[in-house]
Design a protein around this nucleic acid. Structure first.
Lengths: 208, 208
DNA sequence: GCATAGTTCAAACGGTCATTTGAACTGGAG
DNA sequence: CTCCAGTTCAAATGACCGTTTGAACTATGC
């Protein structure tokens, strides 16, 4: 097989995902990242321009396939009969959690990274996540509103935010030392449990 | 009335709540805190010993009344008939959100601080929160298990973690510039919306 | 008055931070 | 071989970090 040469740029992004997901943006130094990536400190500013630009590139790379899959599922759903809330919830949650299942340790690192960034203490960092998922958000909200005609727009937005929060919570706990704390020994069942939980809340817990 | 003299120690705790809740632990410097508190930098180490000890003291002070109220409600519930899931959820969620309602801006600062600390990127910081709410956690889990006999212990733990996460999410959004994003224009209804959401999820969304 | 314990202060400590610099290296094109 | 754009490198820059120091101030008890 061909030599899987990792460029300095790729190594920096990989390590950034791991370290930023572990210690957060402010809690992780460029020096720690470059040492782990076997790169020179100046390489970050050469390839990306700044620490925040490195984070931005890492967020974009990590979220691209997840959001692409969400878009694909949403397209598919909108092509057929009006989707149920469950179908919409699956289309959002499953791409975010299949990372852990389908791509092993590396996927778990990515999942944790995404989950942490989504609720970073700094507003500027959180907005990196928001910007990345903004294009798909309005489509989701509209589809949810159609699937839940009895719920007010405020209620739909409330449910969406809770879905976002719980997904980020369980993503951020990927690789955590106490996986049992996620409420399931088998990580493969996590997505099912979360979907069941959210579907019940959406179907019975949004005020009209 | 008597002079409401704020001691340096109190001013440091107040500003720490505000700044740590705004920028996170790593993202907030002692200098920023002491300047805003009109105190000398050395005052932190004099009164608390270190930056982390200041945070620990702030966490303890902020969570004490919330957990005391939770304990009180739990005592009351356990004195009567076996409580419903809804009663237990209310006993946990409402003390955490009434901060915002009953104590105005100051309470919102405290709520945001608690919500942010609960899911700080650093494990060491999160454990400060965990240690503080640990004594009450096992009682809650046991009561929840009794109220949901058909649910497995894993499912109960899963539901509890989701409740914790959603509460922290909405607490951390207190004082956020887009309060409408919380799904309700009236913050007074937030607790009701969250309880309704969680009750539905607990009653219909935990696998047996 | 004086001593004393509690508190505050400016200043400095060593260390780490993100970023910049300019030289050295690399590999392919002409 | 020469050139050159792309990349890597050690070193330095200035700023900021948490913490420490020892002197100065304050208020209370004698």
């Amino acid at each position: 097989m061909e030599t899987p040469v990792e460029t300095t740029r790729e190594r920096l992004l990989n390590v950034a995902e791991q370290r930023f997901g572990e210690g957060g943006y402010e809690g992780t130094s460029l020096r720690a990242i470059t040492v782990a990536a076997a790169a020179n400190i100046a390489a970050v500013n050469y390839h990306f321009g700044s620490k925040e630009a490195l984070l931005r590139a890492a967020v974009a790379r990590a979220m691209a396939p997840v959001n692409a899959e969400r878009r694909r599922r949403l397209d598919q759903l909108e092509a057929g009969a009006p989707p149920t809330p469950e179908a919409l919830i699956r289309a959002f949650v499953e791409p975010g959690l299949e990372l852990v299942l389908r791509r092993g340790e590396r996927g778990a690192v990515v999942a944790r990274f995404i989950g942490r960034i989504a609720f970073d203490p700094s507003r500027r960092i959180r907005e990196l996540y928001a910007v990345e998922s903004e294009p798909i958000e309005s489509r989701y909200l509209a589809a949810l509103q159609q699937a839940l005609p009895q719920a007010s727009p405020d209620a739909v937005a409330f449910g969406y935010m809770n879905m976002l929060g719980l997904l980020a919570l369980h993503q951020s706990q990927a690789l955590s030392p106490t996986p049992g704390a996620a409420g399931t020994e088998d990580p493969g069942k996590l997505a099912e449990n979360l979907v069941t939980f959210l579907v019940a809340a959406f179907d019975h817990g949004l005020r009209s």
